[in-house]
Amino acid sequence: MDEFKEAARRKLSFGQTIKAVFWSFFGVRKGRDHDRDMAQLNPVHLIIAGGIGGLLFIVALIVLVKLAIRVAS
C-alpha cells in the first residue's frame, strides 16, 4: 500500500499524463520518453486519462460511422 501512495505523489501533472496517453493511443513513443513517463506518471492520473481517452475514441468512432452511413445513403 505504501508503494501506491508513493507512486500517487509522482511529479507529472494531469496535462502531461493526457499527453502521454494520447501518444500511447497514437502508437508513437520514443523509448527514452516512455521510460521517463513510467518513472514519473501518477497512476491515478493515468487511469483517469486512459478512461477519458478511451471514451473519446469510442465517441469519435460512433460519429465517423454515422457520418459514413449518412454519406453513403
Rank of each mutant, 00 (worst) to 15 (best):
A68I: 11
L46W: 00
M38L: 12
R32S: 15
E6T: 13
D33R: 11
D35V: 13
G31W: 05
F25N: 10
I18T: 01
F25A: 04
A7K: 01
A39K: 15
R32E: 15
V59C: 03
F25R: 08
I48N: 08
G51C: 00
H34Y: 14
D35G: 05
V59S: 05
K30T: 13
M1E: 06
V63Y: 06
D37G: 01
G51P: 04
K5N: 11
V65E: 10
G53W: 04
G54W: 10
M38S: 05
G54C: 15
I52P: 10
A72N: 09
E3A: 14
K30G: 14
I62C: 06
S73L: 12
G27W: 02
Q16N: 10
F22I: 13
I52T: 07
P43D: 04
D37E: 08
L56M: 09
A39L: 13
R10N: 10
I48L: 04
G31I: 13
L55V: 06
N42E: 00
E3N: 09
Q16A: 12
A7R: 04
I62A: 07
V63T: 15
R10H: 06
M38A: 08
A20S: 08
G53M: 09
Q16M: 12
V44G: 00
N42K: 00
V21C: 02
I48G: 02
L67V: 10
K19F: 09
D33C: 10
G15I: 02
R36Y: 03
L64D: 13
